[in-house]
Design a protein around this nucleic acid. Sequence first.
DNA 1: CAGCGCTACCACACCCC
DNA 2: GGTGTGGTAGCG
Length: 555
Amino acid sequence: MERKWKAKLKQIEERAAHYERKPLSSVYRPRLSKPEEPPSIWKLFHRQIQAFNFVKSCKEDVHVFALEYKVGDGQRIYLVTTYAQLWFYYKSRRNLLHCYEVIPENAVCKLYFDLEFNKLTNPEADGKKMVSLLIEHVCKALQDLYRVNCSAEDVFNLDSSTDEKFSRHLIFQLHDVAFKDNVHVGNFVRKILQPAFHLIASEDYSISETTGHEFSLFSETPVKQGISFGKISPDKDGGESCTLNSKALERPEPAKQSSPDLSFLVVKTNTGEKQLFVDLGVYTRNRNFRLYKSSKIGKHVALEIAEDNKFFPKHSENISEENQYFLSSLVSNVRFSDTLRILTCDTSQNKEKRIDYFNSTSSKAENIEGFHCSPYPEIDQFVLSLVNKNGIQGGIRRWSYFFPEQLLVYDICKYRWCENIGRAHKSNNIMILVDLKNEVWYQKCHDPVCKAENFKSDCFPLPAEVGLLFLLKEEDFTAAETMTSETKNPHKPPSSTLANGVVSHADWDNGIDDTYFLEAAEDAELAEAAENGLLRYYSGADEIPDELIMQVLQE
DNA sequence: CAGCGCTACCACACCCC
DNA sequence: GGTGTGGTAGCG
């Protein structure tokens, strides 16, 4: 709540400043786009929030990427486009050298890790071995906590090491399994690395081996950091979730197995302090995660497939192998499917909040079960209105958001009416799916028979007030503005999308896009860009960098 | 005109013994 | 000295 408020305040302040400088034009300039051209979406924003607002207003499957464009202070701008279009420009690696995926908050995503250590202060560390041991530990934890089977062959292993630093990204390619969002991933990672925190807190990290002290794999022993974690508490109706419990001492667990030896995770920082091999700072909201084949600005080391990578994407007729690797590397590229399981891992704080929420008598809490309201309260309310019929008070058990489809999936409880069989299921729950892109909703269900026949009810339009509310919310006011600017860009590259989703268009080579301006900002690449004829549209422009970036961005 | 989301750390106020 | 708070430098 405070978060939203802060963002809004910031946005309004910026808006005020913007209009003071550039008052609204009173001239209406209508434009038409050619109907035969599939839309090309390639928009840049200075502000992340505006980029996301644009995505919301967009019917296409677009995503937000962050581009570093100034050496030194890591300044970024935000690009909205489709995976296909990005790859088209990106693959040559002549432009867009420093790109990051923005892992949207609240969106379903893959399990991922950022691993690193300083080679100089850890001369004895065997990076590959550590990666392999970590993968082993994570797979075991996935099995123990969620009954998910996986192995090193499901882990896309990317390397970005230098002489000084060992650096890896791991992106798990689990089959029909994903996490609710990257904050849940972070909770999971902290939970399964719990035993290693002791090793950092203690003076001598060989202590756990020598004492022979036994405790449960995910024991609840408190640690210095104040983070401690509980045992899996399966959902009453699923067993997909686990909770980190900070009230460790109130719930002692009997020892079940000896603590795994995670001493291999302990490395030394530049200053010689103990640290974990796993970077726990990458599980925050809207985290920027460097793309496959991108480097940090000012550095020349890109993420490339690691020597010891064991993940190989399925061969595809339509998509090149490199493109497959690229798509696999994207953390938030998880599509909805009937068989997909969504894993959650809550902190005990959230769990307590949920319980408080559930127990509270406020009018708002009565309708929604637990703490399960989505970021779209109007839609929650509408879904609740759908499942409160004929005297049955249904509830929202939980929700998941799929960024690629802009799809909200609500697991419903208590209300089990299924359109397929024309009556309520006896023991299986139903789902309500809300397609924000097409502004429709439909019903599916967990019943094996319905699932087997891939049942999906007819689509019904979302009521006007839900759609309208959503579009007119003031936080979206930038969307309308950026939409119109789309047609104003005279340099928009034409595009055509083949049925298989691969963008292919020779004309793009003659077009110009914002990318080139950005990359041209770097002197070294300027010459190359000019050589490739990319700058000819601005012949005579001496100051390529800021001027053109601004020109594009001010649209 | 222009990045974002944290966390660790500090200074300070207030409280209690 | 213990505890809460509010602001911020700096990291990822």
